[in-house]
Design a protein around this nucleic acid. Structure first.
Lengths: 232, 232
DNA sequence: CCAAAAGTGTTTATAGTACACCCATGG
DNA sequence: CCATGGGTGTACTATAAACACTTTTGG
């Protein structure tokens, strides 16, 4: 039964953490403090411990290496190529995460000299097969954001309709008509009107919204979750 | 680095194989020939070897335990609860698979006394956390069949429009208007008309169709894959 | 003054849905 | 003869998409 009698195997998690600055998507990378790939950039992650699940490991390593916590996380793929790690056999569970960039002050931890955001289309070379992980996460992001109301987790708690629209436009690589977009979003009843902002930049004070989790629970409770809450 | 110096860890795959008999969904289970859970039913699967990826392991164990080969397979979740296996720490990569029931003559292999199909709503108790795996796979199936044209893999190579409709109705737990369903399917241009069957059962000879992989590749080549090829 | 975003409705096009009659087959 | 599925078209409804002008704000 015991695989370890046959060959050494380790299990790790890696997190593709997305951030959004209003214009482009960003990825959170760490500069590796140890070999292999010492000094190069990689996704935050690390080896799973005896007493934790993959999810717990992902959260812990994120916290240790970047200071990021209380974040949206979901598994999206297992990378199990035989020689994806030069040291020994390591199978990685890859996670996709969404962060409010403003929520976090990045720290450098144990295994990471420093953590930093990079624009998605200006990424440095990354270690292992992390490039593939990022590409796959990016490919899955639109579908995930279509099927679950989680895009909000990339925005501040209160956001303008314009910010929400830019997010969906960036993620889906398209543009939407401003009025049609607002109408669709409002028709979901999943946005709570938070009144008018007192802050503006070269424009009128925008109306702010927040995601109404209660309304979402009411809509989905006891029923099948809507397959496309934002029909965008 | 080496996790195995700290604790014993094994990696396994388990496959939730769906079949369809025209009326209900079925799941392929094996009767376990070894402990733990000897004599009880479980999903086909087994421990990953040194020289194989998760996908290869899933295909191999399926072949060894059930005789099923050349099947549609995709990862859908990693189950990593600390005590999901009573023996030691085992993390499982769960796969969802679609089989043409008629294609396979089930065999019993190494680790499996016998393999057998069960109706989804008449499953026996299953080992480990396989019940959770089946439930999650069943939950994900509609979404997967909406976003990829893989439902065909549950039907014979040539199928009638009625068979296709029953499949989608069963998977999605709903009913469709016969004429609207046929119109939508035909409008995708992904069905090749194979002419009239010479076999019928208490009804007119139905027109048969097959999935036109070539047309699908043409539609998706160089472009983004359609997010909803069958808008059903 | 200017650039940037905000507010606001209507019309047209497309897609979805509902619906009924007669026919062919095997038992 | 009867149960089962097959073939076929139209009208209605709902949703999506296209589209322009004026206002507020900060620099």
């Amino acid at each position: 039964m015991d695989q370890n009698e046959n060959f050494p195997l380790a299990l790790a998690t890696d997190c593709v953490v997305f951030g959004f600055d209003g214009k482009t998507l960003h990825i959170l990378l760490i500069e590796r403090g140890n070999d292999p790939f010492k000094g190069s950039w990689s996704l935050p992650g690390g080896l799973m411990r005896k007493d934790e699940t993959a999810e717990q490991c992902a959260l812990r390593t994120l916290r240790e290496e970047t200071g990021v916590r209380e974040i949206y996380l979901e598994q999206f793929h297992v990378f199990s190529d035989v020689s994806r790690d030069p040291r020994q056999r390591v199978v990685a569970v890859a996670f996709l995460a969404l962060a409010r960039k403003s929520d976090f002050r990045l720290i450098a931890g144990d295994d990471a000299a420093r953590a930093s955001w990079f624009e998605l289309d200006e990424l440095p070379p990354v270690a292992f097969d992390h490039h593939d992980m990022i590409a796959l996460a990016r490919k899955k992001l639109p579908e995930i954001m279509r099927t679950k109301p989680i895009g909000f987790r990339l925005l501040d708690e209160k956001f303008s309709m314009n910010e929400l629209q830019r997010l969906y436009e960036t993620v889906n690589g398209t543009t939407y008509d401003r009025r049609n977009f607002a109408r669709k979003m409002s028709s979901t009843r999943l946005l709570r009107d938070e009144g008018v902002s007192r802050i503006a930049a070269h424009n009128r004070f925008p109306n702010l919204f927040s995601f109404d989790e209660e309304a979402y629970r009411e809509e989905t409770d006891g029923q099948i979750a809507p397959e496309n809450p934002f029909n965008i």
